[in-house]
Design a protein around this nucleic acid. Sequence first.
DNA 1: CTTTTTTAGAACACAGTGTTCATTAATGAA
DNA 2: TTCATTAATGAACACTGTGTTCTAAAAAAG
Lengths: 232, 232
Amino acid sequence: MKEKKEDRRIGRTRRLMHEALMALIVEKGYEAITVQDILDRADVGRSTFYAHYRDKDELLLSCFEHLRTLFEQQQQALFAARRTGKDPEVHFILELFRHTRQHHKLYKAIAGKQSGEMILKYLHRDLYTMLIGPLTELIRNKKSPPVPIEITTHHLVSSLLSLMTWWLDNNMPYSAEKMDEIFRILTAPAIETAFGRKVEKKEYESIAGEHPSGSVNAFYSLFVDSGCCPDN
Amino acid sequence: MKEKKEDRRIGRTRRLMHEALMALIVEKGYEAITVQDILDRADVGRSTFYAHYRDKDELLLSCFEHLRTLFEQQQQALFAARRTGKDPEVHFILELFRHTRQHHKLYKAIAGKQSGEMILKYLHRDLYTMLIGPLTELIRNKKSPPVPIEITTHHLVSSLLSLMTWWLDNNMPYSAEKMDEIFRILTAPAIETAFGRKVEKKEYESIAGEHPSGSVNAFYSLFVDSGCCPDN
DNA sequence: CTTTTTTAGAACACAGTGTTCATTAATGAA
DNA sequence: TTCATTAATGAACACTGTGTTCTAAAAAAG
């Protein structure tokens, strides 16, 4: 399974540069960092850096992909555990907030306001791609929604990322569960609208409750049941 | 009133540089632009540029402030017209979309994805400052909201900007009125929640209607009635 | 017309990027 | 351990872009 013919030095050098960049982003912000800063912090040679990455952006992207792999592996594990029936339901958004808290230093460097804006665009694009399919599927047989599905999806992703960065940049004053709840309260009605259904008062109230397992969850469980996670 | 002791050359030079930057942003994106590009396009000397602006960012900021002034003047005029009772109600969000359409080339350069991310942060900060006060005032006597007012405000501003940039970057496929309606559908329920009131089905349905003048509008008319616009 | 202010243009030092190459060191396989 | 292979080092280099300075010329104001 594992292709382990990689030189140890490569992994070590890459790890050093990752760590250096993450630390520097938190300290002075991505834009202000020079390649020389990274070399000094990681204590590697200039030519070594360019042997691994084309430029600063590619290093940051590499850090981002590392974090995404971490999350995907954890999702895979949870997904597998769920299939055995031993675990409760897994909700993508909640797990994302939990993973963020668990690796908050990495997330803050990568998704916080100190990081490069480029990363947020990648995150947006990735989440958009994950969402647009299942959401389109869900409204297939419904009447045409009052808001185009592309805009709704775009709005949902922007809202999620906006909450994430707010949470990180304000030192996570609330629990992951609370953030998940906040996201639901702020966006669930819009999702119902996009699905073309009326919002019943009873349903709406249930949104503010603690993780209801009613129809509102249809959206959230999408991320687990529809195989929208990459590499599935 | 007007302090017109400014040398004609100053205005001309500044205008040339503004125009050059706007055009270049649309062409190749803000980050890729060098000072030399601006000098060539505007046909001004290098020392002239630095006599007016510290750097590229300050020039972009100057363009942004120019646009904001344009909008504020128009708002002032509408506000005045409304006081005479000759005009229908003025809604901040709708007027912002209308102004965006009216000056879409400027807005696309300044708020589109090709522009510097710095500007979106300024826009976010400005809108947040405009919103947070009136929103806090509105929930003063209500029960404590399920979502902190700071987060709700942050979310609203992010949603608005996300819609704005989507609209601009997709060549404005919908009318300003439609965008205003979309913004209401996607965010009004969250506002009601922040206000601590239950959303009645009748009210909710009215959101999707054409610019209802019911209680949902309490939020939107804030921008007109509460003097939250700068320089009032 | 005279004074004041702005602009032009070239020269400059400086900071940061990305490349090259000969040398040294670490690695992993035999 | 030996040894061929691969990676890291570090210094030198050309290059691009920034921001400053200075003198001469042009334009505006009075």
